[in-house]
Design a protein around this nucleic acid. Sequence first.
DNA 1: CAGGATTTGATAGACGTCTATCAAAATTCG
DNA 2: CGAATTTTGATAGACGTCTATCAAATCCTG
Lengths: 342, 342
Amino acid sequence: MTRPTIHDVARVAGVSLSTVDRVLNDREGVRDKTRSRVLDAIGDLGFERNLAAANLSRGRRYRLCFILPDGQNSFMRALEQDVAEEAAAALRDFTVIETRKVPAFDAGALADLLRSLDPEAVDGVALVATDATVVRIAVRELRARGIAVVTLVSDLPGSEKQGFVGIDNVQAGRTAGSLLGRFCRGRAGRIAMVCGSMLVRDHAERRLGFEQVLRTEFPEQSLIAPIEGLDDKDRVRNQLAEKLAADPGIVGVYSMGAGNRGVAEALAALQPERHVSVVVHELTRYSREALLDGSFDAVLHQNSRSEVQGAIQLLRNLLDGQNPPPQVEPIRVEIYMRDNLP
Amino acid sequence: MTRPTIHDVARVAGVSLSTVDRVLNDREGVRDKTRSRVLDAIGDLGFERNLAAANLSRGRRYRLCFILPDGQNSFMRALEQDVAEEAAAALRDFTVIETRKVPAFDAGALADLLRSLDPEAVDGVALVATDATVVRIAVRELRARGIAVVTLVSDLPGSEKQGFVGIDNVQAGRTAGSLLGRFCRGRAGRIAMVCGSMLVRDHAERRLGFEQVLRTEFPEQSLIAPIEGLDDKDRVRNQLAEKLAADPGIVGVYSMGAGNRGVAEALAALQPERHVSVVVHELTRYSREALLDGSFDAVLHQNSRSEVQGAIQLLRNLLDGQNPPPQVEPIRVEIYMRDNLP
DNA sequence: CAGGATTTGATAGACGTCTATCAAAATTCG
DNA sequence: CGAATTTTGATAGACGTCTATCAAATCCTG
């Protein structure tokens, strides 16, 4: 009924507390035979070290650093806010979180920042990755210095990061295709796409998934080459409005990232009897309003709060050296419509 | 940089450790003037008691009891499984979880069980409520005995429960209506509904929300009185197949709860060229298969694992007397389609 | 102001683990 | 075999909080 302690382990193994401690904390000077007696006892008893007591004793603190892109991207700003709020809550668990910002899409700046991190001051890092070789190298160096590394929102495949917390963007694109295809069923025509930039990895992946589904499952719709909005709402509004006016056969719009406001404005300018189904990404103030007034049909979303929590938990588990690290729940592609808004 | 301790509080307040302790733990024999000096010091320093150390010291353990309905409902069985798994993980945090089962829909049995719970053995209870007055009374008595109570999945409004962890079922029904209405757009006709029993509160609420949306937003569709499946797949299959055969104008099906297998079978029997859009509840082995083979279009889901975790966290917070209790993330109505299956 | 009651302080030991130090025992080696 | 080395044990104090006990100080009452 009560959990076994190191005292029990010592008793069962027939050794002293000191020896148990040496084994538990990987100190040297223990003969193999003795070590295995202790490990056997641990196994027999099902002993698990009381982390709370251990951390209390050593005054353990987790010093984490979150690295986010700077700039006006509203998803990133929401993420920053979530980090700040979770940082306050994490203090209770002896976790100190520092936030650093680097210019968006600037791999060199990101790599420089990573290189500057001192293992004396930081135990673990969560970064929104920019996909570049210099960053991979910097991650490898961080790991070599003994700092734990996970990627957040945007992954860095092929690097030595120890985990990724974010959604599967191909899956997100497929989901969008599946929804929009169904919403437009019976109205064969064309579908317009809007992205931030095709140079951004997640948007490229979303497009890939979207086109996969549309082409195989809804061949009655054809796709128009995407508008690159570059996070500029006016640009998005103008280009989309132009396309919609020029082609009355456009029955659906998929917007893969920033630019929701521009999309909403272009739609508002249409004749009321024209029906265009719309699926966009990221629940923000604007996409929410558009859902409520009926101009958007669905919004795909990633819960940035969960992502931050997941990254913190994953880093702590890595630093605790838990074996195996208890899995963090994967982040889901969430679908919102007017009626299940949170 | 380091958190203040009770020693700091004592020093700043100019009192002894004993007095700080008396204030912190609500022991009597402290003059008001002294108490407020201590409270001021706590406020000034931003002191927060180190729960890990406190629990270590008192050998605190959280004894929770989860009460679930017995029977073949597959959602409830999945929930039971989740409770078992979370119970194992919770042991690490000195939380001992016991599961009890009562006959489904039997308010008397549930109330009896609640009455039998001994505050010497149980600190908190999470129950899947049956909506009845005897249960409300039993909950009140539990609270009077000092046991914390929250409802899980199925709420008990008007009772003295201290929280509810589950989804908003009216919202879920609205979401289903919104999806199915869009899926059937352009094909005006009739929509069939399937429920477990109209006596179950959550199904009744789902129907309410569903009809709200269909009637106001998609008046071109008309609704057929629901089939009551009573958790019997053959009954669901037969009745639904009969309706579909009799009425070629049925373009959509909404199934509010148990009975997914029967729905899938009735659909499989249709001529391949007939297209019926389908939205059901709860992601199970069967609804998952039907999504994958295209016979269901969307599945609404509540994450029972999150619900169990949420209930545990809420109960622990209540028992810790945290003030204000840190909010548990609300449970979302999740939408799954083939392409965002977890 | 004495006496009793109430409030406050001081101290010790506990919870489970960690770290450090020193002594004792066991092993290895010449 | 004795000395050097390695391995093990014993002990003490710490982390932040809790509980208990007893003594000292302060308060109230008549």
